[in-house]
Amino acid sequence: MFKTLYAAAALATLAVAAPASAKEEAVSVTVSFAGLDIASKDGFAAFEQRIDTAIDRACRINGRRTLAEMRAVRDCKASMTTSAELAVAELLASPERFASANEITLRG
């Protein structure tokens, strides 16, 4: 279900707090769902795309990568995916938060 939660979207509003690298740095990213009706199938699909784009950008390492760097990218994406799943579940479970929020923050 959440695999597509992370596909690319050009309209994603991203704020990367720290770039991913082979170093074990904390990474966080904010994903906006402003302007989306995430209660609808199409709106939620667009939100999933924004999340995937955010995770890919936050965990990216440009250029050639060592095995350690590739593991770091994999671990970063796994951690961010778990964070996204929890944030979305919390958002959808809380009508108050859903009504007042327009973004979620993912941490990896």
Rank of each mutant, 00 (worst) to 15 (best):
L14K: 07
L92Q: 15
A7P: 03
F2N: 00
P95M: 05
I104D: 01
S83F: 08
A84C: 06
S32F: 04
D52W: 03
E85F: 05
L67E: 15
A68I: 09
A22R: 07
A18R: 10
T66C: 09
C59T: 05
V73T: 12
F33R: 01
R60I: 05
T4V: 13
T30S: 15
Q49S: 15
V73W: 04
T105M: 10
T53S: 13
A22T: 10
L92T: 07
L14I: 10
R50F: 04
F47S: 04
R60K: 14
L36Y: 07
E24Y: 14
E103D: 03
L67Y: 09
A87W: 00
L67C: 04
K41S: 15
A68H: 09
S83T: 09
Y6M: 13
G108P: 08
K77P: 01
A45R: 13
P95Q: 06
A58C: 11
F2M: 04
A68V: 12
L14Q: 09
A12V: 14
V27W: 03
Y6A: 15
R74N: 07
R74K: 13
V88G: 02
R60T: 07
E103I: 00
M80L: 15
P19N: 06
A9S: 14
T82S: 08
R60W: 03
C59K: 02
A12F: 03
T66Y: 10
E24L: 09
D56H: 08
D52P: 01
V73S: 00
D56S: 11
T13A: 05
S32H: 05
R60F: 11
S32E: 04
A7N: 12
S40R: 05
K41G: 11
E96N: 11
R65H: 08
A89W: 01
D42L: 08
A78S: 06
A10D: 14
A7T: 09
A89N: 11
K77M: 03
M1R: 07
E96L: 06
T53E: 15
E103C: 06
A26L: 14
A8K: 10
V16N: 06
A8D: 08
S32G: 14
A26V: 13
L11I: 00
T105W: 04
R65W: 04
S79K: 11
V29S: 06
R97P: 03
D37G: 09
A22I: 11
R107L: 09
I55A: 01
S40I: 07
E48H: 12
A93E: 13
P19D: 05
R107W: 07
S83G: 08
N62Y: 08
G43S: 11
A18S: 10
A7W: 02
M80E: 01
V27F: 06
